[in-house]
């Protein structure tokens, strides 16, 4: 029982619990190749960290884990720098919008509720879609049918948009507007929810832009470094909600846990991995939803005006 006092959250937490939390989320994110913010931020809130501090500190933790992840992807040549840059430009705009939105909601006392509702909506949708897709893939594999090939190169409405750019690494020649919009949406989510946004970014790049999957993973995790770094800076500067000490504990746990997670993930098949991740995402969504629907033990809450 080693207690450590957090200077910004102004509560005392168990050192081992926080290291363990970082390691668990790191393990899962390494295993599934996701940032893990969507698990970390709600878990921090459940362990008594005020929502706004959980969001800012969660973003800071993702900077650390995504640097490790990007290094590995970079060496395999899986990062499309040009696409990453366009996504980051969109992301900055989205992140600023998210910070302003969060500030307004906090003043109205609705920040916690809106964060929870957004989590439920996004995690519920993504989890359900992923589960559906992976269960079908497992069934097809069991039945011995070949997996349907990705319809690459097929044109859709996105190819009719102006401001076309060439992305040689991704072998794409498309308008800059969709990546900018995707970047902005992810930036908004990152600053509002304290997530990296990989769970939106990856499907969007694969299904909307039709980027090759390996480049998608590398590029997504690369731009997440910058988005979460900017989100961290914005939260620290305008909301004073970053707790460096807490972030440090989570990163230490996360970086170590992540390495073991990657190895564990290599032993599982892709579809099974996706199905597991989908179940986890759905569980988190349900847990948050229950908190919103169940009658709270205390209807009243108090909060300092200056703080959260």
């Amino acid at each position: 029982m080693i207690q450590i006092y957090l200077p910004i959250a102004e509560i005392s937490v168990n050192l081992l619990v926080m290291l363990g939390l970082g390691a668990t989320v790191g393990f899962l994110s390494g295993m599934f190749g996701v940032g893990g913010g969507f698990l970390l931020t709600p878990l921090l809130m459940l362990s008594g960290i005020p929502p706004a501090i959980a969001v800012a500190t969660g973003a800071n933790q993702i900077v650390g884990t995504s640097v490790s992840g990007t290094m590995a992807q970079w060496r395999r040549g899986n990062v499309d720098l040009r696409m990453g840059f366009v996504l980051i430009v969109g992301g900055v705009v989205g992140a600023i919008a998210g910070i302003i939105l969060l500030k307004i909601l906090r003043e109205l006392g609705q920040a916690g509720l809106m964060i929870s509702l957004t989590y439920v909506a996004f995690l519920g949708t993504i989890g359900a879609l992923m589960l559906w897709e992976s269960v079908n893939a497992i069934r097809r594999a069991r039945a011995g049918k070949p997996l349907s090939a990705r319809r690459s190169g097929q044109h859709n409405w996105i190819h009719g948009l102006p401001f076309k750019m060439r992305f040689p690494r991704s072998r794409l020649y498309i308008s800059a507007i969709p990546p900018l919009v995707i970047g902005a949406v992810v930036g908004l989510l990152a600053s509002f929810l304290g997530v990296g946004g990989g769970f939106i970014m990856v499907p969007a790049l694969i299904y909307l832009l039709r980027m090759p999957t390996n480049v998608v993973i590398g590029t997504s995790i690369f731009q997440i470094i910058f988005i979460t770094a900017i989100v961290t800076l914005l939260h620290a500067t305008f909301n004073y909600t970053l707790d460096i000490l807490l972030a440090f504990l989570l990163i230490i746990g996360g970086v170590i846990g992540g390495q073991f997670g990657v190895r564990a993930g290599q032993k599982l098949r892709g579809e099974q991995l996706r199905a597991l991740l989908a179940l986890m995402v759905l569980l988190v969504a349900l847990r948050i939803l229950f908190d919103l629907v169940l009658t709270p033990s205390d209807l009243f809450s108090i909060v300092p005006v200056a703080g959260l």
Binding site: N60, Q61, V63, G64, T65, S66, V67, S68, M71, A72, I225, A229, T232, L233, A236, L242, I244, A247, F248, I251, I252, V255, I256, G258, Q259
Partner: peptide, 14 residues
């Protein structure tokens, strides 16, 4: 500082 610590930890871990 927060970002810097995170980047350093990430690199060290890698």
């Amino acid at each position: 500082l927060g970002v810097f610590i995170a980047v350093m930890c990430g690199l060290a871990g890698w």
